[in-house]
Nucleic acid binder design. Structure first.
Lengths: 198, 198, 198, 198
DNA sequence: GATGAATGAGCGTTCATTCAT
DNA sequence: AATGAATGAACGCTCATTCAT
């Protein structure tokens, strides 16, 4: 038996859940529909996940693992901080637009409406932002007196990018605005928000 | 029967629905619970609204009417454009944080997931943004060569404010960041995004 | 509309539940089967009973109401206590054998295995025994020094009759023993257990 | 592999099943839980028992074997019949109260509700009662003209003891009655029911 | 001898909606 | 204008059982 297939069904379930939930949201996707999409029976899902909450927790976990790796790859690049900053912003938007399903489970649905996050998972969701804040502090050493200030600025810039991604994903962007123009303008502004004083 | 009461029940239903849905989301609120909160029977709701979708459409409609009126009041103030711009940004965040229920139905839940927006409703949701874009164009006449450019900038600034409001409402703001500091920084940056070049 | 039909569906549900549960036990009877037997939909049952537990509580309540009335009728007869005592014993066995479904829900299934009895219901289940104990005390005034002694004797006699009824209902009576002979012997002994010293 | 271990797993399963079923009833105990308690996999149970019914049949079989041995030990004691009679009654109640799990599967749950008893099993369940009836006949030779009469009396006495044990196990004994007083009174009466005329 | 993976059937319950009154 | 009664469909979840290994 090939090693790569050892948990293929688990992966199929996760994939089906991610696609469906990403497309239609947590509450509108039932275990039955996930099972149908994953081509297994409902009860089989329960072999791999304790319940529906555990399934979505696994999805969130996976999503943040992925984004964490991408963040790390950019932050550790041998390049000037300001360049890495812009690359991170651009990659964030790309990541969201390329993986709407991940983005949905990671950032768009309301965590307090399903069972409380396990603590460890909660910690994981914070890591990419910590990396970003550190990069911000590094890229504009004269601007921030301490970590707190850099953190606030980072979160404001993130709000901008998050607003952009969620607007596009929700198909709420004014149809007269070219998406790429919108995105590029947003990235430029995000960098300006956190970058060194001009 | 007094005229003033003619649609009181309709209003009670709308109010109950807004409060419940704003608090717990569309799918977690049942017609039963809305009826109980509005102190009427479930079937009575169907006298006023064709179905659950029509009910939420009415809520969205109302929300945008309200926000449109607020926008208008600020835009038409006798004050320098740049001041009105900042006031509008600040009011937007306030509106969202003070009326999480409206904000939820207006901007946070995914319209494509319930029955298609009626066209007329769709138009209404666009009006406040048009007013804002006009104000932006007015406040920085040298910066934008045409309406399109102003519109893009306006939408980027709006993305920032929307990102801030939705992050706070979803209780995702890093607990180490003081909310007011975050909000003020965001407003300042939003103004910077659209305002005249410094 | 006839008054007698006002809650006909509720009665049909109770009847179906009693018949099925009496025959097959609480856990083996599902809401679906009750609905099918009552010729209504599953959700209709929930219009009349909050949940499955509430349904069985209603059954138990009804059963004890019935038996209470029968007990009262015998206890209040104008006849010597000893005669009423024997009549009560005989009627108890008859009641159990004629109404196996009532008997099952009243005495045979394990209350601690479903949701806790409501207090008021619990009280009701005790009333017939109290009447019996009073009759015992009256029928053998010389034998019992106080209510406690009469109560113990009453419960022992009741254990005998209950053992007889439950043995027959469970179809565990040795097939070589004629049922009537067994029942009559049991009644005679039950009276002896509580009656005046011979 | 050591002989003594050959069926240790089978025994572990039986033991787990007895404990769980005795405590919570047949329908509330799943194969999963039995397997977990027996520290084996669910499918392993099916190596030793054809299905859940066969498992409970084995339990019943074991229970009656045990009780049969206890009965035999008392019946064969070198003592006057009347003493052995009382000892048997007392031991019956003790056995039930000390082994509620055995008692549950042996006498309290309804055999007709699961697959039909295998004939051989059915025969086994009758043996202890035959021994008791013989002892009754021996202890009161003047009272019974034939085996039939002794059998009826024995069954009536057994009904009393069974009523007592099942009442206590079902936690239905009136809380104002001291258990030991109740039990002793019941034993005395049971002996009186079958014993020699005084 | 022992198990992990898988499943169809069924559970108690809630839902949005309809309709006669 | 308002409602109570009713329902089919779906929900998340557990069950006893099978089977390839």
């Amino acid at each position: 038996m090939p090693v790569s297939n050892e948990s293929s069904l688990r992966d199929a379930i996760l994939g089906a859940a991610r696609r469906l939930i990403g497309r239609e949201g947590y509450r509108d996707v039932s275990m039955r529909r996930i099972a149908r999409a994953a081509r297994c029976s409902v009860s089989t899902i329960y072999l791999y996940f304790e319940n529906k909450d555990a399934l979505i927790h696994a999805l969130i976990y996976e999503g943040f693992e992925r984004w964490h790796r991408e963040t790390l790859a950019i932050v550790e690049r041998p390049a000037p901080p300001i360049e890495r900053l812009e690359a991170l912003c651009r990659r964030y938007v790309e990541f969201g637009l390329e993986n709407p399903e991940w983005y949905e489970v990671m950032y768009l649905f309301r965590p307090e409406r399903i069972a409380r996050y396990p603590k460890e998972l909660y910690r994981r969701t914070r890591r990419p932002m910590e990396l970003a804040a550190a990069l911000v502090a590094e890229s504009a050493p004269d601007r921030y007196r301490n970590a707190e200030e850099a953190r606030v600025a980072t979160h404001v810039a993130w709000a901008l990018l998050h607003g952009v991604v969620s607007t596009i994903l929700a198909q709420r962007l004014d149809s007269r605005i070219p998406r790429s123009e919108y995105v590029e303008a947003a990235i430029a502004q995000a960098v300006r928000v956190v970058g060194p004083e001009r």
